[in-house]
Structure formats: structure tokens, C-alpha cells
């Protein structure tokens, strides 16, 4: 492999893990398969409950520290970051979408998305937030409190919030499990479309059959 090729490879690959292992109190041990994903690509992580799907997602998001192994996002090895730097890195480079949407309840939809940009960068990306929410079909809802929205709409706000900082990596934990078919497909479409648009690698943890049918790139935890 020439040096040029190697350089090209490292810049293309958005996320790469090696020999990740984690254990809860030394009792429950997980060893995860290596992951390597380019920008714009989608990976589905499936597996039964208790197999460590959420644990892996939290490791990738820097919410948990791995016992061994390495995670590289872009050019950064996140194992090497201090807590404070990791918080900043996470805000800027990782978008997280959860099964249940949580929001700052006292803030409106728009303020929630803007808050996310402010926390990560110190800047209020108001225009960006507006255009993202419009793209997600929420233009009429932006000044409502999040609790006034339907679950499907809330999930779309989560997507807007995860994307507002144009992250390199988009992580979604069971994003469709509480949605009906119509909303589930809509969310799946939006996720794959927007992650491509923003050049983010998308990793979805799910046991939702509807998603398994939609995305072919899958690994299963056993």
C-alpha cells in the first residue's frame, strides 16, 4: 500500500473500531466486532436484547469508556481525549438520536435545536436550525413546546438536533421502535437521506424488522 493510498483511506473512513471490549462490574462481558464505516454509509447493528447493542452505541458515542480496544472518529482517537474534551468533541462530531426523545421541556422546538448548536460550538446556528426543521417538515411547529408534538414529530426534532452541528457520525438507538409504520419509514428515509447529505456515517442500533428490510449493511451481535 502506498502512502497516498493510506492517507486517502484514513480520511475516507469516518469511524473505525478495533477489538472493543466492555464489562459491567466484571460480570457481564462484551467483545464487539470491529466496525469500519465511510461517510454517507449506513450500518445497522442488530441482535437480541442483552447482547450489548446499546452498550456499543454508548461506547461509540463516548458516553462509556471501553475497557480495551480503540475507537477512531475522523482523525481522533476518542480514547485519548480527556472528559472535558470528549464532551466538546461529542457535541461537535457525534449526533445522537434516542429511542425516546428527551428535550429541554421549558424550551420550544427551535430553542432546543439552537441550544444543541450553542452547547457544541458556542454559536447559535439559528438559520441552520430553521432550514433543518423545514427540511424535516416541522416549519409550523418550531415555536411550540416539544411536549405539544406527536411522537413522530418529536423524533424528527431529535434528528434536527442531532444534525445541526453537521456531525461526522450519526448514532441512532432504536429510532423507530415507538413509531407506527408510516412514521417509521419516514424517519428511516430522512435518516439515510440527511446523513448522506451531510456526509455523516450513520449507525443504527435496532431490532426493528422494518429497518432490517430497508438497510442491507448489517452486523448482528451474538
Amino acid at each position: 500500500m502506498s502512502i497516498l493510498q493510506a492517507v486517502a483511506e484514513t480520511t475516507l473512513i469516518m469511524i473505525q473500531t478495533k477489538n472493543l471490549a466492555f464489562s459491567y462490574n466484571g460480570k457481564v462481558n462484551f467483545n464487539f466486532p470491529d466496525i469500519s464505516l465511510d461517510s454517507g454509509q449506513v450500518l445497522l447493528i442488530t441482535g437480541g436484547s442483552g447482547k450489548g447493542k446499546t452498550t456499543l452505541l454508548h461506547l461509540l458515542g463516548g458516553l462509556l469508556k471501553a475497557q480495551s480496544g480503540s475507537i477512531r472518529i475522523g482523525d481522533i482517537n476518542i480514547e485519548s481525549l480527556s472528559n472535558k474534551k470528549l464532551d466538546k468533541f461529542r457535541g461537535k462530531n457525534i449526533g445522537l438520536i434516542l429511542q425516546q426523545s428527551h428535550f429541554v421541556e421549558a424550551f420550544s422546538v427551535f430553542e432546543n435545536v439552537v441550544l444543541s448548536s450553542w452547547l457544541a460550538t458556542g454559536q447559535k446556528a439559528e438559520e441552520k436550525a430553521k432550514s433543518l426543521l423545514a427540511e424535516l417538515g416541522l416549519s409550523d411547529q418550531i415555536h411550540k413546546l416539544t411536549s405539544r408534538l406527536s411522537i413522530g414529530q418529536q423524533q424528527r426534532v431529535s434528528i434536527a438536533r442531532a444534525l445541526v452541528n453537521e456531525p461526522q457520525l450519526l448514532l441512532a438507538d432504536e429510532p423507530t421502535s415507538s413509531l407506527d409504520d408510516e412514521n417509521a419509514y419516514k424517519v428511516a428515509d430522512l435518516l439515510s437521506q440527511l446523513s448522506k447529505e451531510y456526509g455523516a456515517a450513520l449507525i443504527i442500533v435496532t431490532h426493528d424488522q422494518r429497518l432490517k428490510d430497508r438497510f442491507s449493511n448489517q452486523i448482528t451481535l451474538v
Binding site: D87, G91, L96
Partner: peptide, 9 residues
């Protein structure tokens, strides 16, 4: 959620 969005402790 604030922490996930980049807020520090």
C-alpha cells in the same frame, strides 16, 4: 441530553 449535546459537567 445536554451532556450528549456537548455540555460539560
Amino acid at each position: 441530553l445536554l451532556r450528549v449535546s456537548g455540555a460539560s459537567r
